[in-house]
Amino acid sequence: MRYWSLLFLVTAALCVGSFVYAMFDPNWWLLHNVSVRSPLHFGAEIDRLTMLVLAITGAVFVLTMLALSWALWKYPASPGRVAQYSHGNHKLEIVWTLIPAVILVFLAFYQMGSWADIKFRSRRPKSAPLAQVTGRQFNWLVRYPGVDGKFGTTDDLHVINNLHIVKDQAVLIDLKSQDVLHSFFLPQIRLKQDAVPGMTIPVWFDVDTPGTYELVCAELCGWGHYKMRGLLTVHETQAEFNEWMTSALAEQNQTQPAGATAPDAQASDPATTATDPASSTVERS
């Protein structure tokens, strides 16, 4: 029954085929990348590496599947057929150890540079953080330092689920969490970083196109994890951003007398308490 080999061959072809199809269907493929022409262009870097690895693994995949299918096709049992008697081949072993070894070690070292640029703390922009983003079941609390440029003062601007930045500016963000783990995921910028309570983690990126992009929480954080959605708004110019900032501050002062403490404590989703099965007894040791 050598025809079984076709099953493997066809499957491999369909696997490759579905990737090829996906690349041509914008509803399937990688999201439009908005970190390409910006100075940092991390997004472009990641896409480039993805394609490189896709090509290498794709080639390895096709070759191994061809070999497998060929062996199945060529050597089915049939009356009178006797299998070769061989316990192995040292030369072959060496060849197929060395070649993948070279490829793999190359891949590792080749990518270290990009990784360092994107994540090493030593590479972060020297500017002061633009905002603090704090994860909290199930919202993103965004805090701008306000006019005095300092966090923790009364003129801070608090926004929920909305992060505003300016195009082509490398922004630095302090990522925090108040309760459990969350993850700051901007698929269109190819950026992801977990938010860990008790830690402040710097995150930096930039965007080349003004617009509104979705901010995903990518780390399981409880029953409402799926709906912890935020928005990243990218302004064309600094002036536009300042305008937004002023109006947001004005709005905040209107709803809240100046000097009041952060709205953090009230920011929780009303449903949190509604669905929480626990009684409100405080458990402390």
């Binding site: 590496l49 896709l54 693994t57 891949l107 590792a108 990518q111 190819r190 950026l191 992801k192």
Partner: peptide, 17 residues
């Protein structure tokens, strides 16, 4: 082979989770 994508730290930034 899909493990190779994730082992590559920069690519894993996007595809993690």
């Amino acid at each position: 082979l899909s493990g190779i994508f994730m082992a590559a730290t920069p690519i894993d930034i996007h595809i993690h989770d």
